[in-house]
Computed example of a mutant assay.
Amino acid sequence: MATHLITGAGSGIGAAVARRLHERGDDLLLLARDAGRAKELAAELPGARTLVGDLANPDRLSWALAQQSVPDRLDSLLHIAGVVDLGPVGELTTKAWHGQLNVNLVAPAELTRLVLPQLRVSNGQVIFVNSGAGLSAGPEWSAYAASKHGLKALADSLRQEEKPNGVRVTSVYPGRTASPMQVKIHQLEGNEYDPSRWIDPESVATTILAALDLPRDAQIDDLTVRPGR
Rank of each mutant, 00 (worst) to 15 (best):
T206F: 06
I185Q: 05
I80P: 00
A42S: 11
A16E: 13
L41P: 01
V183P: 04
A9F: 04
L65T: 03
P201E: 12
E91A: 14
L86A: 14
I199D: 05
A211S: 13
G99R: 15
D59N: 06
H98V: 09
L105V: 04
A66M: 03
T206N: 11
A38S: 12
L214N: 03
E40I: 12
P215H: 09
G132N: 11
A96K: 14
T207A: 15
A9H: 09
R60Q: 14
W198C: 06
V52P: 01
P174D: 09
L209Q: 07
L29E: 05
G138R: 14
L154S: 01
R37T: 10
L51A: 04
T177Q: 04
P58D: 02
D34C: 05
V52Q: 03
W97A: 03
W198F: 15
K39T: 14
S11E: 12
K184Y: 03
E161Y: 00
I185N: 07
S131E: 10
P180C: 05
G228H: 13
A64C: 02
A211P: 06
E91Y: 06
V84T: 08
A16G: 05
P58R: 12
R49G: 12
K184P: 00
D34G: 05
W63F: 10
H4D: 07
G82V: 01
M181F: 04
A146M: 07
S171T: 13
P46Q: 05
A16L: 06
L51E: 06
G47W: 09
G87W: 12
A155G: 15
N104I: 09
P195A: 02
L151F: 12
L158C: 03
A56S: 14
A145S: 15
D75M: 02
A107V: 04
A15K: 13
Q160Y: 00
L92H: 09
N123C: 11
K95C: 01
L209V: 04
P195E: 13
G87M: 13
S157D: 01
P201S: 07
L151H: 09
L86R: 14
I6E: 11
G12I: 01
E140N: 15
D213F: 10
V167L: 03
L101S: 05
R24C: 03
S69A: 14
G134F: 12
S142W: 05
V172R: 11
P139E: 15
